[in-house]
Design a protein around this nucleic acid. Structure first.
Lengths: 339, 339
DNA sequence: GGTCGTTAGTAAAGCGCTTTACATAGCTGA
DNA sequence: TCAGCTATGTAAAGCGCTTTACTAACGACC
């Protein structure tokens, strides 16, 4: 591999001249430029990024730490982040943590050690303070999708409460009064907020939120199935279920089908996320769409602003949207109220 | 950020001693070790990876270049690669190219410039020779999932021909004789092979492969829909369609439904890949399962073997598997032959 | 004809680490 | 008593780049 010095020797100038020429820090006469260009071409010279980074302290790279790249939600987020970062000539280093605290900490450490310029952090856990500690005072981090309590870096979230509010409103408008909610991990910000949105819609319709009708566990298919079993085995079944993720909704569907019931005839179901498969399942799932690409792009923009010494908004909320498909109907034995 | 010299000064030894101690290249008496450990803890020292990499020429990192990280197939592959690499203490740098030739070339270049130790390459295009050129002679590359003609690096593929062979056999056993195939891009290795497997099964059953019944285009939902329209608008519809990817199958389903037809009553359908959504669609899709995780892991293992100076197999084929769900039935107006 | 400004560069230090070669002190054995 | 070994280190160069300061040569101006 040719080095800068090789090029300099070949062109008959000093390494300094080549370096400065390549970085547009010097005006050289055409003849010299030509000699350097020729030398570069001849030797197929490519700058060693490692050396440049070590020397400048800038890496033109950002890190994205994410719970699980195999999860399409995070994969789409990652794709958006990458697209946006590449547009500015930045590389993106992605790490999956599997949602483990120590893996998250290691990932952040490792990223810091590799001297990336900035970090976009997504998590799906409730932090016990270690993450907050690690991130405290950093000026080159933005939080995406989920909060970490106690860190004061720019955050890009979705309007979680509005999402479940819209979903519950939709169910209520269809005539449902017996509505259950299945959510993610207790105390996770998105979970709290989605619960709050649900409660608000219920409240506005003067409907009670019964404790046994709110099940919090995980944003997974398995938990969706487990929770659905509990709800549907009960004496007083709900007529509708608001699943706080499409994965949960899939689990619900599976159990409903297993019980010989039908969606939406016996049970109405609304999901959350609008993952690609939501349109493909049977029946196509009514759900809340998150603007995943916009989230990723905005996170990058805010991170770049930060690196640029600007002050992006402390918190941005992106709007969600109700996507009506076919998993909601009026409850049996009841007449839909006009909305 | 504390440096090695800071630690050395704090511990009252030379930087050399600290470096060699940290790399297990020297035996120090307990007292000295303690002083160094204490200094490290006190200063919260973490080695600068950039500097280490520049100095050693090793990066303990590999690159994965992939067409689209938002595609669950590649995302799962990436997750497997990452898991396996992390287990050996390696980082993975993932890049999405969008399937563009120039982006692929840039990505490979960029990875080489960042001095990763090795590269795992996946593509979904037919190379015009530029990739082959770039990769020629490299001793630290493995090809995954799809071939690049003319490069002689270790390759990890799936048994494509066997997949379509099994699928076609299954359809034939159910009584189908009018079987169409919808495949990916013409001349792509996997496409050729899947076509060959299909042809072999047809041949063994003494069934002709009619030209109008083989449509090659893209591994996408859109192409699946377009191809299905062509096939189903024809005077002599096939009774079964072998889709060479689950995405294609989804497109087919959409068109079939749009025509007021039913799967599997009117048209039988087999997919390829067994993506997560295959089990979730209506009807659940009979498909060919690829061992995605195993592919990713094996690619990493072979890459490490390469880096270790060993010679992994030039080409490995991983087995596929027919997953029978509910998208295949006997053709209407015919009696299923016993298999 | 000296000064000043411009042009066209260069020398050398430094980024933080590794590594090779060498050094010193103390001890052992003949 | 002294050669030689072991234990415990160290000095200095080098990875490939950037950057700060400096210089030499030349022409223009007064």
């Amino acid at each position: 591999m040719a080095t800068l010095s090789d090029v300099a020797a070949e062109a008959g100038v000093s390494p300094t001249a080549v370096s400065r020429y390549l970085n547009n820090r010097i005006d050289l006469p055409q003849a010299t430029r030509d000699r350097i260009d020729k030398a570069i071409a001849k030797l197929d010279y490519r700058p060693n990024l490692l050396a440049r980074r070590l020397s400048t302290g800038k890496s033109e790279a950002i890190a994205l730490v994410t719970p699980d790249i195999a999860n399409p939600f995070f994969a789409e987020l990652a794709a958006a982040v990458e697209r946006q970062a590449h547009a500015s000539g930045y590389s993106v280093y992605i790490t999956s943590t599997g949602g483990h605290a120590d893996a998250e900490i290691n990932a952040i450490r490792r990223m810091a050690d590799s001297h990336v310029d900035g970090l976009i952090m997504t998590t799906n856990r409730v932090d016990d303070g270690s993450l907050a500690n690690l991130l405290a005072g950093r000026e080159n981090v933005v939080l995406l999708d989920e909060d970490i309590a106690g860190v004061s870096v720019p955050r890009v979230f979705v309007d979680n409460a509005e999402g479940t509010y819209l979903a519950a409103q939709h169910l209520i408008a269809m005539g449902h009064t017996e509505i259950a909610l299945i959510g993610g991990p207790h105390r996770l910000m998105s979970v709290n907020e989605r619960l709050a949105g649900f409660a608000r819609a219920m409240d506005e319709a003067s409907l009670p939120v019964r404790p046994g009708r709110v099940l919090l566990g995980d944003y997974t298919r398995d938990y969706g199935a487990a929770a659905a079993s509990v709800l549907l085995d009960a004496a007083d079944r709900p007529t509708a279920i608001l699943a706080c993720s499409d994965y949960i909704a899939i689990g619900v569907m599976q159990v409903v089908r297993g019980l010989g019931l039908s969606i939406p005839r016996d049970i109405s179901l609304v999901g959350f996320d609008d993952m690609a498969f939501a349109a493909l399942v049977d029946p196509p799932l009514t759900t809340i769409r998150q603007p995943v690409a916009a989230m990723g792009e905005l996170a990058v923009k805010h991170l770049f602003a930060l690196l640029d010494g600007q002050t992006p908004p402390a918190e941005t909320r992106l709007p969600v949207e109700l996507v009506v498909r076919q998993s909601v109907a009026a409850p049996k034995n009841s007449i839909a109220s006009s909305s």
